[in-house]
Nucleic acid binder design. Sequence first.
DNA 1: GCCGTTTTCGGCCCGACTGTTTTCAGTCG
Length: 578
Amino acid sequence: MPSNFEISKILREIGEYLEMQNVPFKPRAYEKAALAVQELDEETTDLYKEGGLKALEEIPGVGASIAEKIEELLKTGRLKYYEGLKKKAPVDLSSLTSVEGLGPKSISRLYQKLGIKNLADLEKAARAGKIRKLEGFGEKSETKILAGIEFQKKSGGRFLLGDVLFLGRGIEERLERLPEVEKAMVAGSIRRRKETIGDVDILVISKKSKKVMDYFKNMTEVAMIIASGETKSSVKLHSGLNVDLRVVPPESYGAALNYFTGSKDHNVALRKIAIEKKLKLNEYGLFKVGKGGKETMIAGKTEEEIYRALGMDYIEPEMRENTGEINFSLKHKLPKIVGYGDLEGDLQTQTEWTDGSDSIEDMAKAGIKAGLKYIAITDHTKRLAMTGGLGEKMVLKQMVEIDRVNKKLGGKIKILKGTECDILKDGSMDLPDSILSKLDVVGASVHSLFNLSEADQTARIKKAMVNPNVDIIFHPTGRLINRREAYKVDIEEIVKFAKKTGTVLEANADTNRLDLKDEYIKKCVEAGVKISVDSDAHSAGQVGFLELGIAQARRGWATKHDIINAWPPDKMKSFLKK
DNA sequence: GCCGTTTTCGGCCCGACTGTTTTCAGTCG
């Protein structure tokens, strides 16, 4: 039974195939439907079981035609229409479109003229200088393609945390529901909330491992069984993600969890400390080695008791990268990093006024649901025309609407008036100061001219930071994980200048961005620069991105003190520029 | 192909930038 993830991927590819054939409007329709399916709270399978074709048609963006296609997928696991399109141009769309600058039209031409089907073909043709000879391509596009391929190789088939965190958690929950399972827990880089994930590690305590393994290997999303044994099984999912399951005895659970959570460097450092204390640490426990090599286990049931036995404080998984946490722990001086429930507000969200999909009221309600006390509406500005960016008149109009909704919601949450204002080429703002000064929160963003020199880009952003109305620099480096490198900018200088001007730097929580990244967050914390953890939600459901933002803040060792939207509304507002 | 009616067709966010051109197509988000 195909999952929402798989259905959405097929719909998206259909849109891209139609785009390749220059079909008007349909591509957008499929793209919209793909997004809607991806964002559903419920599995499409369940929707269909409960309400049939009708229920599918009620998904916004899905009409009669796409509903029937989804039905075919659910019933047969296949879709003839999709297979027909794929036959006409059997190219690996998902990898080719992920090369920066390559879209459906170019891919279509490359296939027709040079028979390019995948990244390997593309690289070969580019290296042989064949692409520059094609009409519409030139030397520069060939160089750009090669650079794009290099970047792809570097990111090496890793998955975004946001895509696999919930998947891992889903498997964890299903395993935990089995009567044979005492406890199930995702370990590995997911537990450390690393921004990209190679594969998923799950630990289970159970006395009947065979039953657990059988369930695991037969899950609907499994495409292939790689290895299958009593205590360890590995599978590959349809999405290409590998998942390992390990069954451990209860007395070793903590040691196994510690071992399989990593990071490798952190574990090596722990083992060294154990050796200094004449102890031995492995995935089964912490042991005292007596005369004649006799081992007695002194800890292993929980991670806490292992750290304690080593004379250390417990270290949060997000900090286990061997970047100083071991020493802080030994000296009992670890910072108390921000908790997952600590945010009081969200300072960047978009609505249907620009490129978001929900109303101001819907976003506010999502904020209430997430337990927030305030939420800023920060729609785009006019320079970003493709989003329908707001000009002065519309901003003023939106402020009136926000007043209305605030009144209607009766104080359950405070909606703040904000903007995500474009920073223009020379560092000036896309809205006049007379408007910016009326808003509660002004975020400033780079959305254009990503290829300025480092000096120019840095100067551009610094100029925005000098503006007395600019409170926050949104997604300060502009990167898209696995898709686009950050623009060139001197981050040390930006951090220094943020301190000087009292400007906040954002830790954007969008799954694709996570910008600032963890090590830059750490630089801010060390420099005393405040950050804001924002969802950048473009729909009510995306307010949930905040969790990923907090995860990165934790990886950057940020405490509540460092994050302005972990503060109560009044304190937060008094920190912003006047 | 979807949506929303001024209901059963006509519109569909629309501008900047890049690299290719010499007037524009493709990509970005």
